[in-house]
Design a protein around this nucleic acid. Sequence first.
DNA 1: TGCAGGTTGTTAGCCTGTTCACAGTCTCCG
DNA 2: CGGAGACTGTGAACAGGCTAACAACCTGCA
Lengths: 251, 251
Amino acid sequence: MDERLWYLKNSELFERLDEAVIARLEREARYRKIARGGVVYMPQEAADSVYLVLTGRVKLFHITPEGKQAVLALIDAGELFGELALLDGTPREEYAEAMESSSLLRLPREIVRDLMASQPDLALGVTRLVGLRRRRIERRLKSLLFRSNRDRLVGLLLELAEKYGKRRADGVELGVRLSHQDLASIIGSTRETVTVVLNELRNEGSLTIERRRVILKQVASLARSVDVAVPEIAPAPSPRAESPRPAGQPP
Amino acid sequence: MDERLWYLKNSELFERLDEAVIARLEREARYRKIARGGVVYMPQEAADSVYLVLTGRVKLFHITPEGKQAVLALIDAGELFGELALLDGTPREEYAEAMESSSLLRLPREIVRDLMASQPDLALGVTRLVGLRRRRIERRLKSLLFRSNRDRLVGLLLELAEKYGKRRADGVELGVRLSHQDLASIIGSTRETVTVVLNELRNEGSLTIERRRVILKQVASLARSVDVAVPEIAPAPSPRAESPRPAGQPP
DNA sequence: TGCAGGTTGTTAGCCTGTTCACAGTCTCCG
DNA sequence: CGGAGACTGTGAACAGGCTAACAACCTGCA
């Protein structure tokens, strides 16, 4: 079983397909390696495939007329992106760029569509994926409308805690290293403001920063302060909300 | 053929199902009439069904801690809502409220899920619906991050033009009557600001307002000014982007 | 027909967050 | 291990948008 096959069998979306179907998918898939900062696709491009992230991390974003990035989502290893290509032939609307050196599996749109028509499980899985992300975006929309910059940042930190957080003795450590600029692009603010607010939160004792890593101290009370559900933090290893990976290591 | 059956056969999502399946759906469906301002469901409620709007219009929104509405979407006759109930058992996260006296068809979640598993067409249709709305929300997110209040309002007017616009000799008439407060709740602004900006646009000749109806004069140049695709406007009758209704009248 | 409630118009003052400009720090790669 | 380039910190000046407070206006229905 080669590497690509392993990854397909272990992605939440495809794992239930039977051997023969996965083999077909594997034949049609194209492996693609991208360096940090490399562009996977850009707006206006034909949306003829979906991508599975094998290793690394990909950022999806728009660019405003003034050149600012507006981040839609971060996609981690094991997750799929570009899946709106499955809906219709409309071109891409956003940029997809590797945040670090990454390897991807590119699955042609037509193949996956065929499979969806014949494998109800897969169709349901795709619906679920699209729907869960929609729910997430609707939450973000809610937290952007009418909320102060501070509340948006706190909301984002809690979201990151849910996705990347590790519980530690002294709080919850966010296992991501995002620059202030990155955070600003997600909440629609500026680098300077993020710096200031982050330091305010530190002075208030809500978080500490050790070697560029954020540790949230008061998760519950922060959540209450921005009127959001308290995130669930997995104890030991780094979890992923959308697609928990089964045990095992790639060959 | 009774009224409910007619509506099911004519909704984009269900029209391809065969007679027997539609009949089953119809047996399980519950008709529900709601007065203007009536609440269909609210956050925390069990998400045990999806709704088809037969007549009227429904507003989906969140409420911020300060009591402001943040509108997610407006749902017109012929469209479905509450469809995220099909994903999992998670409770509702938003309010659904009738903007005018409306009639709805309530379809139990379990029935529709069953059908999706056995009718690939339906599963694909739901994926498409969820996906198209996600695309729309991602566009909104983009137009909220980093954009001035004015640009957001212009963007919204163009969106409304695409969904409700009628081409006329002197421009594009928006066939919706939304109060300034409504518009503000959609773009995350205040009633006063909307009033002011709308009057600015009128003074600049970009639009006129006749008997509470907005008429856009310079659609193309407005679209350019906010860096958005020029909306396509249907010529004569009121169109709907997501679910064009086939010819015919309800019995 | 006549008011009551919802809708629009307008302004002054305040406050949050942006822009701009520069200094200091980290870190990673050659 | 040293420096270049990215990242963080800080403050002054400015501006867009919000709050608050009224006035005038429609319009639907009792």
